[in-house]
């Protein structure tokens, strides 16, 4: 693992998520820390609980037991204002989830104006700068349905960035894209990682994990089976389930 680590941003302890009265264990005791500046890539077979894990981090899934702390605040506690904390955790979804009834500009300024108290002009300047950064500066007045999948996902990323989050959560951001559009989205994510953003990314893109990740977590059956640097994971996997998983996907 990398030598110098930033402060702990998210700390997860013994996280469990059970459905159907405990019959199905989507998460079965996850413990890990996310440090500032890390790019944590979560891989694993489908049904391994990796998406549930990611969605628990901002409480889109409410865990059955265990704690998740954000800068030391337990976010599962009743006293915590989860809406305030979610502003600090940007999320990007597999299916983009842009708001189809709003223009790209409105998509990006809705949160900053309503939640951060920015003026319309401030929010629009910021949104325009972000759009320019991902090469979509000319699409501000388009509607989501006028864009390609890759463009939509780039918009979804900058929409989350417009809230100035401390950490970005990616839930299979390239899985719903045509193959030729995967590259443009990964490129934006790479830039983001280089700029020092803390990221947690559930993905099947092993190339991305290898190149950009600072740590790779391999999950199966709701547990963390192995976690290590990308180099170790891909060149020297220890667990046999990881070995067979990598044989199938690489």
């Amino acid at each position: 693992m990398s030598a110098e680590k930033g402060e702990v941003i998210i700390s997860v302890k013994d996280l469990k998520k059970h459905y159907g009265g405990g019959d199905i264990k989507a998460l079965d005791g996850i413990t890990t820390d996310i440090h500032k500046g890390e790019v944590v890539v979560v891989i694993g077979p489908s049904g391994s609980g990796k998406s549930t894990f990611l969605r628990s981090l901002n409480l889109l899934e409410r865990p059955t037991s265990g704690t998740i702390s954000f800068h030391g605040t337990d976010i599962t506690s009743k006293a915590t204002d989860i809406n305030k904390l979610r502003q600090k955790m940007g999320m990007v979804f597999q299916h983009f989830n842009l708001f189809p009834h709003l223009t790209i500009m409105k998509n990006m300024t809705l949160g900053p104006t309503k939640l951060l108290g920015l003026s319309k002009a401030e929010a629009e300047n910021k949104a325009q700068a972000l759009l320019d950064r991902v090469g979509l500066g000319d699409r501000a007045n388009s509607y989501p349905s006028q864009l390609s999948g890759g463009q939509k996902q780039r918009i979804a990323i900058v929409r989350a960035l417009a809230m100035d989050p401390e950490v970005m959560l990616f839930d299979e951001p390239t899985s719903a894209l045509d193959p030729e559009m995967v590259g443009e989205v990964l490129e934006v994510m790479k830039q983001l990682a280089k700029a020092g953003m803390t990221m947690v990314c559930v993905t099947h893109e092993m190339g991305f994990a290898r190149e950009v990740g600072t740590r790779v977590i391999f999950m199966d059956c709701g547990r963390i089976i192995e976690e290590n640097t990308p180099e170790q994971i891909f060149t020297n996997p220890q667990n046999e389930r990881l070995v067979s998983f990598l044989q199938k996907v690489l």
Partner: peptide
């Protein structure tokens, strides 16, 4: 997903309804 997108930006339940769900 529309609902989750609203919540993940930090909108509360009612604000998500008012700004995102009800208009659609």
């Amino acid at each position: 997903g529309q609902f989750e997108a609203g919540r993940s930006l930090g909108f509360g339940y009612i604000a998500t309804m008012v700004h995102i769900i009800i208009p659609q």
